[in-house]
Computed example of a mutant assay.
Amino acid sequence: MVAFSLPAPLLVGLGGAAGALLRHAVYETLAVEGYPAATLVVNVAGSFALAALAFAGVGGDAALLFGTGACGAFTTFSSFTVDVVGLVENERWRAAAFHAAGNLLGAGLAVALAWLVVG
């Protein structure tokens, strides 16, 4: 059996492409008028996935492909920030607070759930 390994940047890039495509699919599926629900979903789900990989002890090439690449591109801190600022600028204070708390608490709870399930 011949073993080979792809260069790290290629692994991250391939995983990133898959994660970005999956995030786009979520955004297309979960379009909610007036609320950025898809951002909340990808950040919570991505936090669970990355934590599950970490707690399962995934390392090396698999961590680069799935953790850094796929989970890194699937989740989005920048969109989360822009969403919150946009809601504040539109004086939608409750929605902004819910979105900020939902992303932060949801991600934390997702990590805790991954620890219970995998750890």
Rank of each mutant, 00 (worst) to 15 (best):
F48W: 03
A3L: 13
G72P: 09
S79A: 15
L87S: 00
F77C: 04
L109N: 05
P9Y: 11
V111R: 07
D83I: 10
V44R: 14
S47N: 15
N90Y: 02
S78A: 12
G106F: 07
S5F: 11
G46P: 06
G34S: 01
A37N: 07
L113A: 15
G106W: 06
V12C: 02
F4W: 12
E33R: 15
G34I: 00
A73C: 09
G15Y: 03
S47F: 13
G16C: 04
G19R: 02
A107C: 14
G108C: 00
V85T: 13
A25Q: 09
L113K: 06
L64R: 15
A18E: 03
V84G: 03
T39P: 03
V26N: 01
V118R: 10
G13E: 00
F77W: 13
V44F: 13
A17D: 04
L87T: 02
R23K: 05
T68L: 07
A45E: 09
T81L: 12
A52R: 03
V42R: 04
G102I: 11
V32L: 15
V111C: 09
A62F: 11
A73D: 04
G34F: 00
A51H: 08
G60D: 06
F80I: 10
L65D: 01
G15A: 01
A112I: 09
A95T: 07
W93M: 12
P9S: 12
V117T: 09
D61V: 12
T76N: 06
W93P: 05
L22S: 11
L10H: 05
N90P: 05
A51I: 11
A110F: 10
P7V: 05
T76Y: 04
P7C: 05
L87E: 00
A31F: 13
L65M: 00
E28D: 14
A100C: 12
F66D: 02
A37P: 11
V12H: 03
V84S: 10
E28N: 12
L113Q: 07
V12K: 02
L64W: 08
S79N: 12
L50P: 08
F98E: 06
G16T: 02
G13D: 00
A101D: 05
H99D: 15
F66V: 12
L22K: 04
N90R: 15
A54L: 14
V58W: 05
A96N: 00
E91M: 10
A96P: 02
H99L: 12
V58R: 02
A96S: 01
Y27S: 14
R94H: 13
L14H: 02
L116G: 14
Y35E: 07
A114G: 11
V12N: 01
L104S: 09
D83H: 08
A56F: 06
N103I: 05
L22W: 12
A31V: 14
L109Q: 05
V111T: 11
Y27N: 14
N43I: 13
V88M: 15
A96K: 03
F74I: 03
G57H: 05
G67C: 07
A63S: 14
G15E: 03
A95K: 10
R92I: 04
T75G: 10
M1A: 13
V84W: 03
